[in-house]
C-alpha cells in the first residue's frame, strides 16, 4: 500500500478533530483511500464511525485537520459541492424519499444538473434514464419501480438507497451500516452487490456485523474513541488482543 503512486490516492482524511463542546467524536483521526479500494471501518458504539462519514460529506466541520479529495481540500465546501465532486453517502437509517416512486428517487439521484431553475420540466435525459434502469436492475427493484418508496420493505429501502448513491455516479461511496436491520440472506446479497462493483468505485463501508465484514474481503480499519486503533485483514484484526479488548471482546 505504501508503494502505490500518489496519483492513486483518492481520499485523505488528515488529522481530523471533531469537538462536540469537549467530547471529541474524532480525535486527530487520519485515513487514506486509494482509487478503486474497498475498506471497512469498524469500532464499538461511539468510536466515531458515523462522525467520520459526516465529516467527509460536510455535515460536520472539523476544528482541526483537513479532508483532501482528489488533491483538493474539501472540508470547507458546501455539502452540495462536495457531492458534485463525487462523494455520496448512504445514511444509517434508510434515507429514501418516501412519497416519491422508486424510479423518481433514482431519477433525482441520477440527475446531473441539480440547479433549481433547471427543475421546471419533467423530461429525463436518455443518459440519466439509463443510469436509473441500471441501478434498478442492480438492486433487483425493477418490478417495484412504480411504487412509493415509503411502502418498500426495510431491506428494499436499504437497497434503494444504495442504488441512489450508485446512481449519482459518485466515485467515492460511503455506506453507513448498509445491512442494518437485514437478515442473513439479505446481508449476503448486499455483500454480493458491493463486491460486484469491483474496483469501479471506491467504497468505504461502516458496519459491525462481523459476518458481513468477512464477506466483503477488504482491509479493516478499527476505530476506538475517535482515534485510529489498528488496520489489517479481518483475520489479523480478529487476532489482535488490543482490538479484542475494546471491541470484539463483546461478541467473541
Amino acid at each position: 500500500m505504501s508503494g502505490s503512486a500518489t496519483s492513486d490516492l483518492l481520499l485523505s482524511v488528515d488529522g481530523v478533530t471533531i469537538d462536540y463542546s469537549g467530547f471529541k467524536a474524532l480525535d486527530g483521526f487520519s485515513l487514506t483511500l486509494n482509487r478503486g479500494e474497498r475498506r471497512v471501518v469498524i469500532g464499538p458504539n461511539g468510536a466515531g464511525k458515523s462522525t467520520l462519514c459526516d465529516t467527509i460529506i460536510g455535515r460536520v466541520r472539523p476544528s482541526e485537520g483537513r479532508v483532501i479529495f482528489k488533491g483538493e481540500d474539501i472540508h470547507r465546501l458546501p455539502e452540495q459541492q462536495i457531492v458534485a465532486r463525487g462523494i455520496c453517502r448512504k445514511f444509517q437509517a434508510p434515507g429514501v424519499l418516501p412519497t416519491l416512486s422508486v424510479r423518481d428517487n433514482l431519477a433525482l439521484a441520477a440527475r446531473k444538473d441539480r440547479r433549481w431553475w433547471k427543475s421546471f420540466g419533467t423530461g429525463i435525459p436518455a443518459e440519466e434514464k439509463q443510469a436509473v434502469d441500471e441501478a434498478l436492475d442492480m438492486v433487483a427493484l425493477t418490478h417495484r419501480a412504480g411504487v412509493e418508496a415509503g411502502t418498500l420493505a426495510h431491506g428494499e429501502k436499504q437497497w434503494l438507497e444504495i442504488a441512489m448513491v450508485l446512481a449519482t455516479g459518485a466515485e467515492l461511496l460511503l455506506l453507513d451500516e448498509p445491512t442494518a436491520g437485514m437478515g442473513p440472506a439479505e446481508t449476503s446479497r448486499t455483500a454480493e452487490l458491493i463486491l460486484s462493483l469491483g474496483d469501479s468505485r471506491t467504497v468505504l463501508v461502516i458496519d459491525h456485523d462481523m459476518s458481513f465484514v468477512e464477506q466483503l474481503a477488504a482491509p479493516v480499519t478499527v476505530m476506538h474513541q475517535g482515534r485510529f486503533l489498528k488496520q489489517g485483514s479481518i483475520a489479523e484484526v480478529r487476532a489482535d488482543p488490543e482490538v479484542a479488548a475494546v471491541y470484539l471482546g463483546h461478541t467473541a
Partner: peptide
C-alpha cells in the same frame, strides 16, 4: 414537475436531498 418532486423530497428528507447534491 421536477420542482414539485424536489419540494416534496425536501419536505420528507431534507438531508437526503442535500446529500444527493
Amino acid at each position: 414537475s421536477r420542482f414539485g418532486m424536489l419540494l416534496r423530497a425536501a419536505r420528507d428528507g431534507e438531508n437526503r436531498v442535500r446529500f444527493l447534491g
